[in-house]
Design a protein around this nucleic acid. Structure first.
Length: 694
DNA sequence: GTTAAAGGATTTTTT
DNA sequence: ATCCTTTAAC
């Protein structure tokens, strides 16, 4: 197979390895995806394996899709290889065995919002009082962590929390979920493990079908996922995991670095192969990245190296505030190489200063994975109606839409309905309708009528037609169309987008279940691989598995990154995870790496003094080029550009002229007379003034 | 039961 | 600074 020729010795060894379990420790940029895809191709082409007998598991849909594409390029036959995320594999397994766990085969996957809503219902009913959101979120988080650890309500939950009321709440939640017949994210893994353990026949079938199990990004596997692999593995099949302990960044959601560290102990006769040659980054970038990550203690240790040249030096820019940070990025982007560049930040909200400036300067940008399509209010509304068509017991969906748009069904009416319900909420509505006020009654009737019509349409027509009718018949269209103009029209557009997305699914209940699953599991809709001329704005976490020619890591300030609350790390482990996150961010860069830190930043609307990130002190000063506001080329021009008599514009006050400029010993000040007549004084550095020519 | 005003909380990171 | 929830008024 000619692809083998393209590999280095280590990589080829990993591809050819067979018989015992294999752990590939693959450093950043060491060609890990190439190794996995080539291995799959090799197994099919050279070893004559049936594509159906190969299972490859990843963590993100992005990774799964890329893997699939690359395998297909090598081997067209590979369409039958099962390449999925852990969660999507779990959904597949549970759906075809749903009867064994008393689930509806068209179960809906509750996202975090839905779970929270259900938990609220359950807890408020149990305690008979309103529950504060904080408390609710804490319990929801406990439930997620318990499921990450494969712990059921009956298990010993002391490793999750010492709060003894939690056990009961978890049990109530889980029972309610079971009654409804739906699952949440955690269940996709935990209940799959349950299925494999409880029904030996299913386990045997899976072990026989999947002769090869490959796992990517194994450092991010949680305990439940580990158990899932354990159940899928047998003496007769082949298990191979790939990962990098230095890139484990999902501890907060249950990832266990120990999984990868302990792999050789858990699976006897494991062979370990290290991939240490980096093909992505320049010498300079790699050097900086290594200088930081080597301060971690939780490592197996690798010696990453590259044949590449030193390349451009890594740049650290010390800037005054977040607006200047955005300007610094804009300067770099002046060469127009937008799509080759990524701007990285720790927290989603940090994207705002970039968005504001880029919109003004007409720099096209792509915001990766922030406001997700399925999280939009109007989309969730439509999906709730759809979910109810499949499952009238879906409490969360029912409560969401019963009075949205408003139909005169308020608290009083709702409690009457809830009193007579025995699970099926639509039946309960019919039952309760007679004893209601005429307003509530007619509102309820119109809702039921619309749902009945849609149910008939669902079996008779294509999905896009159902959704089109749904938006109209339920009143969602009018509801959003009557909102203020710009907001209403984007919401309508999103609803239309949902119609478009459904076209390829055909019709019927199964198709609908398929659409809902795909929307639940493929939540990030932006494709970062699409080279469409936009600069990428993206969180550190979201860059996993991606690479860019040019990377700007922003907000390198203590508290922001490493991120912490109350100025303290509870454990060193958290700090180490942050450090790994830095390492991941840096190793995304192929040719040029910039880092920025601000001396001041607006947080909660208040300007704060900031300290540089402690990680920066781990980098030897001779391997970075430091720029400051005053000496750096990109920003030095900003101030001379503002002189007495020149025209300026302010986002709130409009156009004006500088009437006076002076230096107060610390900052440049300007006095501006606006065309509206008012006069205002600004500290130039912090003002939102822009130069304009009249 | 709906809408408007005021007050309070918010900022990790995601399948 | 902005978003969300609670409260007050229609």
């Amino acid at each position: 197979m000619e692809q083998l020729e393209l590999l280095n010795d280590r990589q080829r060894e990993a591809v050819l390895h067979w018989d015992s379990p294999l752990l590939i420790l693959a450093g950043a940029g060491s060609g890990k995806t190439r190794v996995i895809t080539t291995k799959i191709a090799y197994l099919i082409a050279e070893k004559g394996m049936d594509p159906r007998s190969i299972l490859a598991v990843t963590f993100t849909n992005k990774a799964a899709n890329e893997m699939k594409t690359r395998v297909l390029l090598m081997i067209p036959d590979a369409v039958d290889v099962m390449i999925r995320t852990f969660h999507s594999f779990g959904a597949w397994l549970l759906r075809r065995n749903s009867h064994l766990l008393d689930l509806d085969s068209n179960f809906k996957i509750y996202d975090d919002d839905d779970s929270l809503a259900l938990l609220r219902q359950v807890l408020e009913k149990s305690r008979g009082e309103k529950i504060a959101r904080d408390e609710l979120r804490r319990y929801a988080n406990y439930i997620s962590r318990a499921k990450d650890k494969n712990l059921f309500p009956q298990d010993d939950l002391r490793s999750i929390t010492t709060d003894e009321t939690f056990d009961g709440y978890y049990l109530l939640y889980q029972e309610r979920l079971q009654q409804i017949g739906n699952v949440d994210f955690g269940d996709l893994i935990m209940r799959s493990v349950e299925l494999l353990r409880r029904v030996p026949e299913v386990k045997r079938r899976m072990q026989q079908r999947f002769q090869v199990v490959l796992v990517d990004e194994y450092q991010d596997a949680n305990t439940a996922q580990f158990h899932m692999l354990e159940e899928l593995h047998s003496e007769d099949n082949y298990l191979c995991v790939v990962g990098d302990e230095d890139q484990s960044i999902y501890g907060f959601r249950g990832a266990e670095v120990r999984n990868i560290l302990d792999f050789p102990d858990v699976f006897p006769n494991t062979e370990v192969i290290r991939l240490e040659e980096n093909y992505r980054s320049t010498q300079s970038i790699l050097q900086v990245a290594i200088s930081v990550v080597q301060n971690n203690r939780q490592r197996l240790g690798k010696k990453l190296w590259t044949q590449k040249d030193a390349g451009e030096p890594v740049v650290l820019a010390i800037l005054s505030n977040e607006n200047e940070e955005a300007r610094f990025c804009a300067e770099i982007l002046q060469d127009g190489n937008y799509e080759r560049t990524a701007i990285l930040y720790r927290n989603n909200y940090q994207s705002r200063s970039f968005e504001t400036l880029f919109a003004r300067l007409h720099i096209p940008y792509r915001l990766v994975g922030s406001l997700r399509f399925v999280d939009r209010e109007e989309v969730k509304d439509a999906l709730a109606y759809l979910s109810l068509l499949i499952n009238p017991r879906d409490e969360v969906s029912f409560l969401r839409i019963v009075n949205k748009p408003a139909r005169g069904i308020g608290k009083a009416t709702l409690s009457k309905i809830l009193q007579v319900t025995r699970g099926d909420f639509l039946a309960a509505c019919r039952e309760a309708a007679d004893g209601l006020s005429s307003k509530a009654k007619s509102g309820l009737k119109s809702l039921l009528l619309a749902l009945e019509e849609l149910q008939q349409l669902l079996v008779a027509s294509s999905l896009d037609e159902v959704i089109r009718q749904l938006i109209d018949r339920t009143g969602l269209y009018d509801f959003y169309a009557n909102k203020d103009e710009t907001e209403g029209s984007t919401r309508i557009l999103n609803l239309e987008e949902l119609v478009n997305a459904s076209v390829e699914y055909g019709g019927g209940v199964d198709a609908l279940a398929g659409l809902l699953e795909s929307l639940a599991l493929n939540s990030s809709d932006e494709d970062p691989f699409a080279g469409d001329g936009r600069v990428n704005l993206i969180t550190f976490h979201n860059t996993k598995g991606l690479e860019f020619d040019r990377v700007i890591i922003t907000g390198l300030e203590d508290g922001l990154f490493p991120h912490y609350r109350d100025n303290v790390f509870e454990e060193d482990l958290e700090l180490e995870e942050e450090r790994r996150l830095f390492y991941v961010a840096m190793t995304r860069a192929r040719e040029q790496l910039y880092m920025t830190t601000c001396q001041m930043r607006r947080v909660f609307g208040i300007v704060q003094n900031r300290k540089a990130s402690r990680f920066l002190s781990e980098i030897p000063s001779e391997i970075v080029k430091v720029m400051t506001s005053n000496s750096s080329q990109p920003t030095s021009e900003s101030y001379p550009a503002f002189y007495e008599g020149c025209g300026v514009a302010h986002p709130e006050y409009g156009a004006g002229t500088i009437t006076k400029k002076w230096y107060n010993g610390q900052d440049f000040m300007v006095l501006v007379r606006f065309s509206e007549g008012r006069t205002a004084k600004f500290i130039l550095k912090y003002s939102k003034l822009e130069r304009v020519n009249f």
